[in-house]
Design a protein around this nucleic acid. Structure first.
Length: 351
DNA sequence: GATTCGTGGGC
DNA sequence: TGCCCAAGAAT
């Protein structure tokens, strides 16, 4: 009598059609409601809104991006409106969202679409990829979601879901090509935008980094990580380098009308293109630096701020005076500054 | 392939 | 508290 195992483990590789049906069915029942999304079964969403949301969502949570998306689409309803905006207005509107190169590229992209494409987004992955600030992920996402192209949309969620589904033992980031190939093996021309968003919704709400909610997952029957008993082990990652610490000085200068003296930072580098307080260089050890203008400077304490690749302590000094600065009222300055300078300004005003 | 580039929330 | 991480892109 032939011995047949009672339960033969299924695999996603051998059952692609069933995996797709299970996840798309789950998506139809459990998809997230997000402000940039069209409703279930609705016509494909406006490419401008898809693109804008994708740029804002790069390395950014949906909760953080949502109010910015609402503000941008209210103020600049079309890509042509955005293309015609002033640089300073767009940078100020982006303040607090982080990764400010995105805002500079956002404007460059809007202007390229307006100037080179008649205000209409390219509808192919290759055409989108040629735009400023649009990389492999964003090109694929816009092509799939806005234009129904069967693109292989691979973000951090898709990498995690795929690593678990196939129990990939190679650690990130070395595993990226393998994960992309495996994710691509599940893409078809059926509902490409929904497929991409289904994978991302699953990754965000069920197949989470820390404690995956496998009891709610529609794919456990095919999931090698689930079958291993330790799904949270995936994806494996190589250890990150320690975060160094830097220190520096920031000056809060007020004129006789109570306005704040600001500088425009150079386009390249940290906080590029944004307004900022005048500061010293930031180094591992304190560097004695002359203040930007003579004044009766007083110590007002310090603020801590953590960037992606270093932590910063900023000593804040406040004083009264004038000079060659960009002078903004307090409220406008607070609203236009990146967070590290908003914190320093608040410290200087309180002291 | 490795670095640079923000911020805020969760645990 | 410190670490992880979030719909990555550019260099």
């Amino acid at each position: 009598m032939p011995s047949v195992p009672a339960e033969v483990p299924k695999s996603a590789a051998g059952d692609r059609t069933a995996v797709r049906a299970a996840l798309l069915g789950w998506y139809d029942a459990h998809r997230r409601t997000l402000v940039w999304r069209a409703g279930p079964g609705a016509a494909p969403p406006d490419p401008y809104r898809v693109w804008l949301s994708e740029i804002m969502l790069q390395q950014t949570t949906t909760a953080h991006a949502t109010p910015y998306f609402e503000a941008f689409t209210r103020r600049w309803p079309t890509v042509s409106d955005l293309a015609a905006a002033e640089d300073a207005d767009v940078m100020a509107a982006w303040a607090g969202l982080g990764y400010y190169a995105r805002a500079r590229n956002l404007l460059a992209c809007a202007r390229a679409v307006a100037r080179d494409h008649g205000g209409v987004f390219p509808d192919t992955e290759a055409g989108l990829l040629a735009l400023p600030g649009v990389g492999a992920y964003t090109a694929a996402a816009v092509a799939a979601i806005a234009f129904g192209r069967p693109a292989n949309v691979v973000d951090g969620n898709v990498e995690r879901v795929t690593a678990r589904l196939f129990a990939v033992e190679t650690p990130l980031p070395a595993a990226k090509p393998e994960l992309k190939r495996l994710a691509g093996s599940l893409v078809t021309d059926e509902r490409p935008g929904d497929w991409a968003q289904a994978l991302m919704d699953l990754g965000a709400t069920v197949c989470r980094p820390g404690r995956p909610l496998c009891e709610r997952c529609p794919l456990t029957a095919w999931c090698a990580a689930f079958q291993s008993g330790r799904p949270e082990r995936y994806p494996l990652k190589t250890k990150k380098a320690d975060r160094p610490h830097r220190t520096g000085m920031a000056w809060v200068l007020r004129d006789d009308q109570g306005r704040i003296g600001l500088v425009r930072r150079p386009d390249k580098g940290l906080l590029g293109g944004m307004l900022g307080l005048p500061t010293s260089d930031w180094a591992a050890a304190p560097v004695e630096t002359a203040p930007p203008v003579p004044a009766n400077w007083r110590e007002t304490g310090s603020v801590e701020h953590v960037f992606t690749h270093f932590a910063l302590t900023l000593q804040v000094r406040a004083g009264q005076g004038g000079g060659d600065f960009i002078w903004l009222p307090e409220a406008e300055a607070l609203a236009s500054l990146p967070t590290v300078f908003r914190k320093a300004l608040e410290r200087g005003l309180a002291g």
